[in-house]
Simulated assay, not measured.
Amino acid sequence: MKISGNTIFIPGSTSGIGLALAVELNARGNTVIVGGRRTELLDRIAAEHPGIDTVRIDTADAASIESAAKEVLARHPDLNVLVTMAGIMRVEDWHSPESFLASAESVITTNVLGPIRLIAAFIEHLQTRPDATVVTVSSGLAFTPLKVTPSYNASKAAIHMLSESIRLQLADTTVKIVELEPPSVRTSLLPGQENSEHAMPLDEFVAEAVELLRTQPDAKEIQVERVKFLRYGEARGDYNQVVETLNASDPHGR
């Protein structure tokens, strides 16, 4: 993926990693469209960052995705990058269904069906662009589980394998698939995570991730150094120790 000269849609980016990434990519010479559910946040982003366009979208709602995609493409027919950023994380207790079922369904709808529906809404258009990219967003927890967030872990593992699979299918097109794999980052994904000493500062994560995009334009996975502990435990042969360390050190980390 080239680092400038793109037109980029980032749904689910009114805060956290998505917004920070949108601001940084806009500063590097890209046209950026931020998508989110809350119009007051979109209005504030538009006022604070005049170079960034905004579109209302609820990535848990198939009809909203379809409507937003039409609006984005009508306003930005040169769109060539989609970042499927939207995601939620819930603490769950799987001892009884009333403690986890509703949460699990919500997480899977947002974190798995959302990206699938987004890709479906844009993939035909992206194949018409000479240099297009879909950036999926998984997590270090796709590779090492955090005990308290089973559905989130599973959703991000699904995104990893989805990315691997559609990359193979789309090899005969102009569309590249790049998987962004964050570690725990100081955002409000879980209560208290924005102040967690175990989480990576947001500005440091975005700076390192964007630099990797710049220096590794053909990378399939974007991995900051902090995530490699979780990403490669099985390959290193210390998976059990990584699982133990993760779950002992940070009940709210990723």
Rank of each mutant, 00 (worst) to 15 (best):
Y232D: 15
D78M: 12
I108V: 14
D43T: 13
I8R: 11
E225I: 06
R75S: 15
G51Q: 12
F100D: 08
R236G: 14
E24W: 09
K70G: 13
I33E: 01
A132P: 03
D172H: 02
A68G: 04
H160I: 01
A207E: 00
V32F: 09
M200E: 04
P130C: 05
T133Y: 02
E194T: 07
L118V: 06
E197P: 08
I119N: 09
V137P: 06
N195K: 14
N80T: 11
A157Y: 03
V227C: 12
R236A: 15
K156P: 01
F100P: 02
P50I: 11
L146F: 07
S103M: 13
N30R: 00
F143P: 05
G18F: 11
I88R: 05
N111L: 07
A219K: 00
R37C: 00
R38W: 02
P251A: 13
K228V: 08
A104I: 09
I65S: 04
T136Q: 11
A157F: 04
N26Y: 08
A157L: 10
D203Y: 09
D43G: 05
L41H: 04
H76K: 07
Q193I: 08
E208R: 09
D78G: 11
V134F: 01
L141F: 08
R186K: 14
E179I: 04
F122Y: 15
L73C: 10
S249P: 03
T215S: 01
T174S: 14
Q223F: 13
T173W: 14
E244D: 15
I3K: 13
I57V: 15
L189G: 02
P77N: 13
F229M: 13
V83A: 10
S163K: 02
P11D: 06
V148E: 15
T215I: 03
E194G: 05
P182V: 10
V83R: 03
R236D: 15
S184H: 05
E194W: 07
A22H: 12
R226G: 08
V178M: 12
T173V: 09
G16F: 10
